[in-house]
Lab assay of single mutants.
Amino acid sequence: MPSETPQAEVGPTGCPHRSGPHSAKGSLEKGSPEDKEAKEPLWIRPDAPSRCTWQLGRPASESPHHHTAPAKSPKILPDILKKIGDTPMVRINKIGKKFGLKCELLAKCEFFNAGGSVKDRISLRMIEDAERDGTLKPGDTIIEPTSGNTGIGLALAAAVRGYRCIIVMPEKMSSEKVDVLRALGAEIVRTPTNARFDSPESHVGVAWRLKNEIPNSHILDQYRNASNPLAHYDTTADEILQQCDGKLDMLVASVGTGGTITGIARKLKEKCPGCRIIGVDPEGSILAEPEELNQTEQTTYEVEGIGYDFIPTVLDRTVVDKWFKSNDEEAFTFARMLIAQEGLLCGGSAGSTVAVAVKAAQELQEGQRCVVILPDSVRNYMTKFLSDRWMLQKGFLKEEDLTEKKPWWWHLRVQELGLSAPLTVLPTITCGHTIEILREKGFDQAPVVDEAGVILGMVTLGNMLSSLLAGKVQPSDQVGKVIYKQFKQIRLTDTLGRLSHILEMDHFALVV
Rank of each mutant, 00 (worst) to 15 (best):
P2S: 12
P2D: 15
E4Y: 10
A8Y: 09
A8L: 12
A8G: 07
E9K: 12
G11F: 04
T13R: 02
C15S: 07
C15I: 02
H17F: 06
R18V: 11
R18L: 10
R18H: 13
R18S: 15
S19Y: 08
P21S: 14
H22I: 02
S27L: 11
S27G: 11
S27A: 10
L28F: 02
E29T: 14
G31K: 15
S32N: 02
S32A: 15
S32Y: 10
S32P: 12
E34F: 12
D35F: 02
K36G: 02
E37C: 08
E37N: 09
E37S: 12
E40R: 05
L42N: 02
L42G: 13
R45Q: 09
P46T: 04
Q55W: 02
L56T: 10
S61C: 12
E62H: 02
E62N: 14
H65S: 05
H67I: 10
A71T: 12
S73N: 14
P74I: 07
K75L: 14
L77M: 11
P78R: 02
D79K: 02
I80C: 10
K83V: 04
N93T: 15
I95S: 02
K102R: 14
K102N: 13
E104V: 15
L105V: 12
L105M: 05
K108S: 06
N113R: 02
G115V: 06
V118G: 02
S123D: 02
L124V: 02
R125A: 15
D129C: 06
A130K: 02
A130P: 02
E131C: 02
E131F: 04
D133L: 14
D133W: 14
P138Y: 13
P138R: 12
G139Q: 09
D140I: 05
D140V: 10
T141G: 05
E144V: 08
P145L: 02
G151Q: 02
G153L: 05
L156G: 06
V160G: 13
G162C: 02
Y163V: 02
R164H: 14
I166C: 02
E171A: 02
E171G: 05
E176S: 08
V180W: 02
V180F: 05
R182D: 06
A183N: 06
R190H: 08
T191F: 02
R196F: 08
D198C: 10
S199D: 14
P200I: 08
H203N: 05
G205M: 02
V206E: 07
V206R: 04
R209I: 09
L210C: 09
K211S: 02
N212F: 09
E213L: 07
E213C: 08
E213R: 10
N216S: 12
N216W: 02
I219C: 02
L220Q: 05
L220V: 02
R224P: 10
R224V: 02
S227Y: 15
N228S: 02
D234W: 02
T235Y: 12
T235H: 02
T235I: 11
T236A: 04
I240T: 15
L241W: 10
L241V: 11
K247G: 09
K247V: 04
L248T: 08
L248G: 02
S254A: 05
V255F: 02
G256D: 02
T257F: 04
T257A: 08
G258W: 02
G259A: 06
T262V: 09
G263W: 02
G263M: 04
I264R: 05
R266E: 02
R266G: 06
K267W: 07
K271H: 14
K271F: 13
K271M: 09
G274E: 02
C275G: 07
C275R: 02
